[in-house]
Design a protein around this nucleic acid. Structure first.
Length: 443
RNA sequence: GGGUAGAUGCCCGAGUGGCUAAAGGGGGCAGACUGUAAAUCUGCUAGCGAAAGCUUACGUUGGUUCGAAUCCAUCUCUACCCA
């Protein structure tokens, strides 16, 4: 059976190469060469996974319409589910945390280290890579995968978030967003179509739609207006995709819509329904972690998830802390990304089972213990005292070690969550983790 | 032995009569960080006090003045130059 399926998969893939652009959105690449680059795990992983919801073998469906997301197990007492997302460059186990590599690099870490950590998919950013080095250059270098040498799945954010985070330098219009870019101040226009085109050039496995991320707080009128824009932009993205990337083949680029609507339940529902109507490969919940209180963030998830298809991956953008990730897994979210583990690492904070630990603090000056009992051997070999010393001395190794450690912590967290879902023990796992993580330290 | 310059808070260093418990760095101690303009940013850093405030502080001692880190004298020390 396995052999037959593999040949199906290869057939679909090669056919796809002939009739359409390949997953990187490139034309006329030698298909023999590209075929040899398909990771074996994709061919096996994407088509080996058990049965779909209705008990139909996945492989049987995939000949007609490739299934890229399969729910493998669910938690009976929550919305948590374990799944498998098949993408052109490999299969991603969900729930999964995606390290952020904005400029084509997960800061301080080598791709081989990311693999060692068990990272299965990383992010890149349209806005930043567009400005520098430029998407045409990356296209010419064979796409973001070849350019960076990361050969596992990638997701590119659309630049929508930069519309929010660079708010002082931009103006939003129906057409798109006029930026004064932060590098040299020159004026640029990013539109939904251009974002899609850039992302096609970058060639990530998943491209995000171009959205507007409203600030917090914002009144309902603004949120509704913003949502209207996001929805009209989604339609334009869809039109662009249909025109430029005909839907076929497992190797094609996937596209995720982004649910907006701020803190307003009816807007979240409306946003989700409008996006689902357009039919994307997955759905993200955006406009969270923009300064709102945590309960609003959870509400935003709860207000969107019920209107998203069960058989498509759900992605909470830009989140979150370890407890937040577990809470959201319990709410049915499959994918996460967050700069927190890598950013705070560079600022001297290590995640531990007992909560965040400021390694620079005086209290660790002579502490011989490793940073965390669950640390990776590469980090566990060092004492807290030594890590503190490295930070105080300004050694680059300090930034690398904590970045490595924090990503290990996050990736292990979601790996443990997946195990727990399969084992039927997710609620206990979640509660135990959060209780220990949040309890105040002993005096 | 003579001359010149200088001695400021943990360190460097600004300040030449009241707005100075003393700029600015550094160091130290904390904190923030959630689709990365971030190896960044913020706060504190003489003592006591929750605070108002009080008490000590600009090498020493003494003086001028309503008031001195700032002016004068003295001593001590440092650097450089001359013998």
């Amino acid at each position: 059976m396995g052999l037959t399926i593999v040949s199906h998969a290869a057939g679909i893939y090669s056919q796809n190469l002939k009739i359409a652009k390949n997953p990187c959105g490139e034309e006329n690449r030698g298909n023999g060469e590209k075929l040899s680059k398909i990771p074996h795990s994709l061919v096996a992983g994407g088509f080996s996974g058990g049965f779909g919801l209705a008990g139909v073998p996945v492989a049987a469906i995939s000949v007609r319409l490739p299934v890229s997301f399969t729910v493998l197990a669910t938690d009976p007492s929550s919305s948590a589910r374990r799944g498998e997302l098949a993408l052109p460059h490999g299969t991603v186990a969900t729930p999964m945390f995606m390290p952020v590599g904005t400029q084509g690099s997960v800061k301080t870490l080598h791709p081989a280290e990311l693999e060692e950590l068990g990272a299965q998919i990383i992010l890149g950013n349209t806005y930043h890579l567009w400005l520098r080095p430029g998407h045409e250059l990356i296209r010419g270098m064979g796409g973001l995968h070849d350019f960076t040498t990361w050969q596992k799945p990638m997701l590119t954010d659309s630049g929508g978030f930069q519309v929010w985070s660079l708010a002082k330098l931009r103006k939003i219009t129906e057409e798109g967003v006029r930026f004064q870019n932060h590098l040299d101040g020159s004026k640029m226009l990013l539109t939904p179509e251009l974002s899609m085109d850039i992302q096609a050039a970058l060639g990530a496995d998943i491209a995000m739609l171009f959205d507007e991320c409203p600030p917090y707080p914002c009144d309902e009128a603004y949120a509704a207006k913003s949502l209207g824009l996001t929805s009209r932009w989604a339609r334009r993205c869809k039109d662009w995709i249909v025109t430029h990337q005909p839907r076929s083949g497992t190797g094609r680029q996937r596209h995720f819509g982004i649910v907006q609507g701020s803190v307003f339940a009816d807007l979240r529902e409306q946003s989700a329904r409008e996006l689902v109507e357009l039919d994307f490969d997955g759905y993200a919940i955006g406009g969270v972690s923009v300064g709102e209180p945590e309960h609003e963030m959870f509400r935003a998830i709860d207000n969107a998830v019920p209107f998203l298809p069960y058989d498509k991956p759900r992605y909470a953008m830009g989140l979150g802390t370890p407890p937040q990730i577990l809470e959201m897994i319990g709410r049915g979210v499959d994918l996460f990304d967050c700069v927190m583990p890598t950013r705070v690492a560079r600022h001297g904070v290590a995640f531990t089972l007992d909560g965040p630990l400021h390694i620079k603090n005086l209290s660790h000056a002579q502490d011989p213990r490793p940073v965390c009992e669950s640390a990776h051997p590469h980090v566990a070999r060092f004492s807290r005292a030594y890590l503190r010393h490295l930070f105080r001395a300004g050694e680059i190794l300090a930034l690398r070690l904590l970045s490595f450690h924090n990503l290990h912590f996050f990736l292990r967290l979601v790996a443990d969550a997946r195990e727990a879902i399969s084992a039927g023990s997710f609620p206990t796992f979640k509660d135990d983790f959060i209780q220990r993580y949040t309890q105040p330290p002993l005096p």
